[in-house]
Design a protein around this nucleic acid. Structure first.
Lengths: 143, 143
DNA sequence: TTATAAATGCGAATTATTTGCAAATAATTT
DNA sequence: AAATTATTTGCAAATAATTCGCATTTATAA
C-alpha cells in the first residue's frame, strides 16, 4: 500500500498537479474493497464537484493509475491499477461483485464457482482487448 | 445464418411474441459486422420507438439471443449470441472495433496483434464473469 | 513572489436509459 | 373468423450518467 506522500510524487511523475481532489480520490480507491463507480466516489467526497470527479477518473485511467472495469451496470467502474491480477464475478440479478484471484480461464469457470463464497453459477464471461489501432498509432507519431 | 421464418419460431420458443419490431431488430443484427449500440439500432429502424428498442435488446439478452458487449464507450453494445466464439479489439483512441477469432489468452496477445489487420498494439484486456450469486439463486428457487 | 498552465466549481447541456400508462396487437380460444 | 387476453408498443416525461463552457482558483516552476 502506497504512503500518503508517495501519491503526490506519483501524480507529478505522471505529469499531473498533486491537487487535494486527486489525492482524495486516490484515497477513496485505496480504502475500497471493490470497483467503484463515479457516483460512489462523488457520494464519498461530497466536497468535490462531480465534473471534477469524472475528469479525474478519466485522466487517472489514461495514465494507467486507475483501471476501467465494465460490470454491465449502466455506468463505468474503476479500481486501482496496481492491484494484483484478478477478475470479477458479477451477479446478473443484483449486481453483487466478488473479486476472483488465481484465474486460469473458461475451463476454470467451474472451479471458480466452487471456490466462490457468494456465487452459485457462472453463465457468461467477457474478454475484451484494449489497444491502439494502426491509424491512431500513425497519427500519434506525427504529432 | 438463420432464415426469416426461423426467427418467428425462435422468438416463440423463447416465450416471446414474434412482433415486427423484434424481427426487425434481429435482422439489423444479422446484417451487422460488429457489435451495435442501442442508438445504432434506433437510427437504423427509425420506425421503431427507442423505448421499444431498449426493452427488446434487454429481453433478447436475457434469453441469450443477444449478447451484451462492453467496449468502454459510454453505452452498451450487443451482438447475436450464436456467432462463433470471438473477442474484440477496441481502439482506446478512436473506438474502432475488430473481431478476433481463434483466441487463446494473454500470452496470445502478441500473436493477436501481429495477425490483426487494424491494430498496432494491445495495452489491456478485460475479462469478467457473469453469473448468479447464491442469495439470488435462493430467492429464485422460492418464487 | 509571481507568472502561468493546469485544475476546479458551477450551471447547463448532452447522452443514455427507464418508466407509467393508454392503445394496439399477436396468439389463443371459442 | 371473432372474441379474449396477456404482451407489447408508442409516447411523453423522468431519471441516470457524463460532458461542456467558462470564470475563478491554485500548484508548481522560475
Amino acid at each position: 500500500m502506497r504512503k500518503k506522500g508517495d501519491d503526490k510524487m506519483m501524480l507529478r511523475k505522471s505529469g499531473y498537479k498533486a491537487t487535494p481532489a486527486r489525492l482524495a480520490i486516490l484515497n477513496v480507491f485505496k480504502r475500497a474493497k471493490k470497483p467503484l463507480s463515479a457516483q460512489e466516489v462523488i457520494e464519498t467526497l461530497h466536497e468535490t464537484d462531480q465534473a471534477t470527479v469524472y475528469r479525474t477518473l478519466k485522466s487517472l485511467e489514461e495514465k494507467g493509475i486507475l483501471r476501467h472495469i465494465d460490470l454491465r451496470h449502466n455506468h463505468a467502474h474503476y479500481e486501482l491499477a496496481d492491484l494484483a491480477e484478478h477478475h470479477h464475478l458479477v451477479c446478473l440479478e443484483c449486481g453483487k461483485i466478488e473479486i476472483v484471484h488465481h484465474c486460469g480461464m473458461e475451463e476454470t469457470q467451474n472451479r471458480i464457482v466452487r471456490s466462490s463464497k457468494h456465487f452459485a453459477e457462472i453463465k457468461q464471461h467477457a474478454l475484451e482487448f484494449y489497444g491502439v489501432c494502426k491509424s491512431c498509432a500513425a497519427r500519434q507519431k506525427k504529432l
